[in-house]
């Protein structure tokens, strides 16, 4: 067992973990942040996507001990990072809701974290950039059409 200190959604936390414990397990089980979903556990689906020091990663494929001293943002931290009171949705969440970019919603937290990562690199992405940028996230319901629509709407909202 080791102690790992990290920052999660802006707050410093310290957890005691086995070395084989995954970051996703710490987020969901030790910290109760169950918005980070586990869809496959084989590094394919992206449902577990979070930001690690500002870059998207699959938290089921990172060991908790690897992130000592680093900063993690999960879906729970997204709205407060945009609006300190957390009363308003982040524009990407808002656009997903308005464009009906989800059906069962299982992929949605990972999808939204991937989209916010994509918009950092490409603030006004075209279709190809959106498709390429979301290759690590699978959705079994929507057929992606409304997800692409939501990304474009979010990009506009964030520019305004």
């Amino acid at each position: 067992m080791s102690k790992v200190a990290l920052t999660v959604n802006g707050k410093p936390v310290e957890v005691e973990v086995e070395h084989r414990t995954l970051l996703s397990t710490v987020l969901r089980e030790a910290l109760g942040l169950t918005g980070t979903h586990i869809g496959c556990d084989t590094s394919q689906c992206g449902a577990c996507t979070v930001h690690l020091d500002g870059r998207v990663v699959k938290s089921c494929t990172v060991l908790a001990v690897q992130v000592q001293g680093q900063s993690v943002k999960t879906i729970e931290g997204l709205a407060p990072s945009f609006d300190a009171s957390g009363a308003r949705l982040h524009p990407v969440q808002q656009a997903f809701s308005e464009c009906h970019a989800l059906q069962c919603g299982f992929c949605t937290p990972g999808m939204i974290m991937a989209v916010t990562g994509l918009l950092q690199d490409h603030p006004q992405p075209d279709d190809q950039q959106i498709i390429h940028g979301l290759e690590g996230n699978l959705c079994r319901c929507t057929g992606y059409v409304n997800i692409i629509k939501a990304v474009k709407q979010a990009a506009q909202m964030m520019q305004a």
Partner: peptide, 9 residues
């Protein structure tokens, strides 16, 4: 290679 999450690690 892979996808953005894989390329970041």
């Amino acid at each position: 290679i892979g996808d953005p999450q894989v390329r970041n690690r």
